[in-house]
Amino acid sequence: MTTATTPIRVLIGKVGLDGHDRGVKLVARALRDSGVEVIYTGLHQTPEQVVNIAIQEDVNAIGLSIHSGAHTSLFPRVLELLKTHHAEDIAVFGGGIIPSDDVGPLMETGVRALFPPGTSMSRIVEFVKGLPR
């Protein structure tokens, strides 16, 4: 049981094969510096690995960075696995190279927020801190 005073825990990760980790590291650092507990997965994770770590670490949210165009496959797969594990309460958000046409459909499948290039770190921190615990 968590209370509002417990720090929020977030898994930040890279799924799929792409190695673009500049953005994800900046987000991980910004969240850490604002008092969020961050678990960083490193590169080249599969959706299965991400969901397993998220459950083991009992996180409130999963933030994924995808620059390879595979977002239309990888976000739905993560959401589906969370459902299978009865862990739908873990919020999923993300960023990277995601065409605006894909944002709506991904939000409909249950992604909570998608941050485009150029988003300020404070906006992402604000979003994470506002997540229900």
Partner: peptide, 8 residues
Amino acid sequence: MKIAHDSP
């Protein structure tokens, strides 16, 4: 901050 897995 925590690094998942065994990466040093």
